[in-house]
Structures are given as C-alpha cells and as structure tokens.
Design a binder for these strands. Sequence first.
DNA 1: TTTT
DNA 2: TTTT
Lengths: 165, 165, 165, 165
Amino acid sequence: MINKAILVGNVGRDPEIRYFDNDQAVANFSLATTERSFKTRDGQEIPERTEWHNIVAWRGLAKLAENYIKKGTQLYIEGKIKTRSYDDANGVKKYATEIVADVIQLLGRKSDNDGSSTYPSQSGGQPASTSSAPRPPESNKVQNGPDKQPDFLSDDNGPEDDLPF
Amino acid sequence: MINKAILVGNVGRDPEIRYFDNDQAVANFSLATTERSFKTRDGQEIPERTEWHNIVAWRGLAKLAENYIKKGTQLYIEGKIKTRSYDDANGVKKYATEIVADVIQLLGRKSDNDGSSTYPSQSGGQPASTSSAPRPPESNKVQNGPDKQPDFLSDDNGPEDDLPF
Amino acid sequence: MINKAILVGNVGRDPEIRYFDNDQAVANFSLATTERSFKTRDGQEIPERTEWHNIVAWRGLAKLAENYIKKGTQLYIEGKIKTRSYDDANGVKKYATEIVADVIQLLGRKSDNDGSSTYPSQSGGQPASTSSAPRPPESNKVQNGPDKQPDFLSDDNGPEDDLPF
Amino acid sequence: MINKAILVGNVGRDPEIRYFDNDQAVANFSLATTERSFKTRDGQEIPERTEWHNIVAWRGLAKLAENYIKKGTQLYIEGKIKTRSYDDANGVKKYATEIVADVIQLLGRKSDNDGSSTYPSQSGGQPASTSSAPRPPESNKVQNGPDKQPDFLSDDNGPEDDLPF
DNA sequence: TTTT
DNA sequence: TTTT
C-alpha cells in the first residue's frame, strides 16, 4: 500500500557510490533533518534534535548523487521506508532502516550546489521534472553537463535496468 | 520542482470515462475531503466543510476508475495540481484546477469495493504497481482478472503511450 | 527541517497502550505496507513484499488507538521518522526506527471499524481535527461518545500536556 | 479527511500582506513549480511547463512571509487545497483554488534568503521546527531577529488567535 | 456530488 | 503480525 517518506535536509557526508558488474550504480549517504529547539509553555527548554536518515539511491539517482550531491547539500527526497536485517561482525542480528529514494531534488541556488563558475549567473531558471510524467531518455540523463544541472530526478527507470536486490 | 497533492476522500459521483482515437482513456470524477465540525476555544461552532477536488486519471488509472471506482468509493490519491484556462459558453475566460492522478489506491475492505462477481473478467484492470519500482509488462496488466483486484495503481506508463494533452 | 512519513496499511496486532504517572498515554503497534508481486519485463517474478513499520502514538492518538484500532484495521498515518538507540539484554547497542504519528485516519467503512456496541461510551475518544486548523477545546474532546467516531485525529495538543520523552 | 498539498518552488512576486482589525495578518503570494522539458521516446519535445499556485498564509506564517519571503525565494510549502467562489466585476461567478499554508520552510542557504551581511557566515546551522511538536511561544516567534531566522514555521496557533474566515 |  |  502507501509507504512514503518526504524529507528536506542536509547531506552529512559525501555519498559513497558503488558500481555493480551489470553497470548498475547505488549511492549511500546520510541526510540530517533538524528540529529547532524551543521552549514549552511551562518554560522547559527542548533542545535542537537532529534525525539522521540513511538514504539509498539507485540507477540514475546514484549518478545524480555522484555528480551533484556532497556534504552539506540541501535536498528534497521522496522515497520508501525499508528495514533490512543483517548479521554484524559478531553474528548479532541487526536491523537498519533506510529511505530508498524515488525522487531527489537539489535545493537552493545553483551556486549552492556547485561552487564552480561554470553556472552562468544569469541562468536563474528553475528546471524541473516530475516523477510520473514521461521520462526523458537515459541518454539524455547521462549527458547532462554542468550547465544543464539535473536538479530533480525521479527513479522510474523501469525493469530493464533492474538491480541486484 | 515538487507539485504534489495527497488526498483521502470519497468519490462524489460515478466517473466519466472518455476514449480517444488512439485508444487512450481518461477518467474524470470528483473527490470530497471533509473536515469535521468543531468548536473553537471561545465556543464558536465551526461547521463541517467539504472540499471538492476534480480528479483526472489517464491511461491505466482511467481503466481502474472505469472498473473499480464509483460514487462513494473511498480513495487515496496522489497527483499533481494543475490549473487550466478555458473560455466558457459566453466567451468568458475561466480557470479550473484539477488533480492529475499519479497514484490511486482503493481503500477499505474488498467488500466495500467489490465482493460481487459483477466485474467482467475481460474488463482488463491493471495490477498494482509502485511509482518507482520496475513496472510489470503491459501483457501482464491486461491479463488481470476480476479476482485479483488492482487496488493500487500508479501512472508511470512512460512516453510510448503518451496522450493528447 | 522536513521529516515526514505517509503510510497507508493494515495494523498487524492489537495496539499496546501504556499510561504514565502524569496520565499521559502512549500506544505502540505495527503497520504493514505491502507491495504487490509483479513480473519484470524480462519475466522475472518479484514476490510480494511487506514492510513493517513501528508506530508510536501519544496522547489523544494513543486513546484513539486504544478505542478504535485493532489487528487488521486499515489506517492512513502521517508522522515523523525517528531512530533511537538502546542496549539489548546482552548489552549490545541496537537501533530501532519508529514512526511517531502526527495524524491517524481510520479508513474503510464504519462497518469495518466499528458498527458494534463494544466500544465503551466512557472511553473518551477525541473528535476529528486537523493539524493546523484551530483546535477544539479539550472539554469538547472528552465529551465525544462512541456514536461519533473520531476517524481522524491529529496530535497537536501543545506543550501543556507534554510527555516524558 | 486528508487534503494535503506539498510544493517546492519559487515565489513569483513579493507577498502582499494585509492586517485585520483584530491584529491578524494574511499573506498572499504565488509559487511556481516548473517541470523540466523533456523528449518522449518517439522524439516529441515536451516543453517546460510552469504551474502557478496561489498561496495563502495566516498568522505567524503571514509574518514569516512579510519578513523573509520575497520574489524568487525558494520554498517548501505544505498546506490544504481550497477552492472558493466569488463574483467578478461583471457579476460572473468564478472559482479560485488556493493552497492554505500549514508549513513553510525557507530553502537554500541563508545568503539566498537574506542578502544582508548580518548573517554570520560561520553560523551555518539549519534550525527547524515541526508541525506537531509543542510550539515555541508566540513571543519567541515575533522576536525573531535577522540573526535567528525562522526558516521553518508551521501554522498551529490554535483557536485563540483565529481569523475572519 | 461523497462520507461521517 | 496485517491485508490483498
């Protein structure tokens, strides 16, 4: 049924990208969502609290992460909440919950996302894409150069480029 | 950038389905989201208020609507908010805001939605899918019989079956 | 920043309710979101997959859970994703991710959720509310009887009835 | 039931703020969500398309708009979709759909939102707040100076400061 | 026009 | 552990 996470936050560290034999890519990174501190009505001080989310991005979103996401980047992420179990080094069963990204949108000005001067300062427009509309061809995606930043990408590549999971 | 509506409500009237020459289908129906009445702290009675949303569903979602959605059906809908202008019969320019559905999920028990054998097996409902997961082949979709109700459907059919809009 | 989960699924087991000295309540239960099985284009069968979410509901939402949520109930839940760490019986540090509910909406027909007279009239459910609209006075809430089911509730009780967390 | 819009986009013009006799404020502004252009698989070029949303923000969110939102500001907005009817100058009945904001989050770097040099460049943190958690006292909100930017605000002020609508 |  |  419906399993959706919607996050806006900042990336904690540069993404780790792995490639598989079948040329598929996956990116892992963490995203912080921070709640501001505040006082309750009775004067109690509630401190700021940061929640860290483990983000997993496959296929085109992994390439987006590789090219445009780094420590500190502000992102909108939409994805599915998934918990997987694994045995740690001591054979203890553990659980890890991850957000498997369906949509990633880079936020802030172009200058926030790339410090280079290759982004024409007069460009200004806000390109965008949608998760369900007809998808641009893969060839279009990977050709995206720095002057045509894919600041939004959805993960609807279909089965043909499916993955080892 | 991000343009998303998330609605849970009840269908006001049976959907209207139209077919185009290229075999594409579109369904239109209205969805009510009702806020309950309540009293403010100073005792003021705020009456119940119903908001009516114009829903547009294309392709497989139109067929889902045709086969499984009727007056009173409770739905979860995810879509995009779009406003279009048109000239009415008197040539006055008017605006209409619609929710173009990306995901429709039938809610409630099966007995609420169906339970009867009145759904023709050739009706061609489509199987559940998620917006980003690999999509089942079209051939699989049309083989879906009435005993395997597609209570969730997303609209990610891709460009090849795109539409006159 | 933004940390939001949106779920539609079925409750796995009757909620567990705990009361604290200060009369506050918390409910814990699990919610299943099931993705249907499907075939990829190359014929691979992807089996059905169920994700289990640990739901935590405080205050009025805990009472809603106590009175109206049971094994099998279909729910819409909106909440925050929170991960907490704890040491298990063997002193091993573990992590648990939970959805702390902000909004719970009972889905399906009334007959799915109730219809019976088994809900104690003194149970004190709370009326529907929205997270941002003016909130009904507390006195109104506790007068709610069983014949006026609060099928929607949001958790915006404010600081004065805050909690040991 | 559930009526939620989630938008990320850019403000089209400086907000208009109006104050009422009872000291309440409302802000109106438009927000653009732009879909990128793309090519369909059969080579058809789908042009970029911008959707304009009419945003209405009450109370504290109106003050946030007054102080921190201007033409070009990038925002995350969560709200309710509401359609109201009115008679235009010619007595023709018209409809206008608006997004009544519940949550507004300023996006991008601090320097994006305020060009002044009063924001210490070393500050860097991203304060935040949540829609359902206990709310900071009003006095805290209105004292927010430029060095403590309220880049996130939710509209849960309660009935006592309710409004002429 | 739905639903509660 | 739910539901379909």
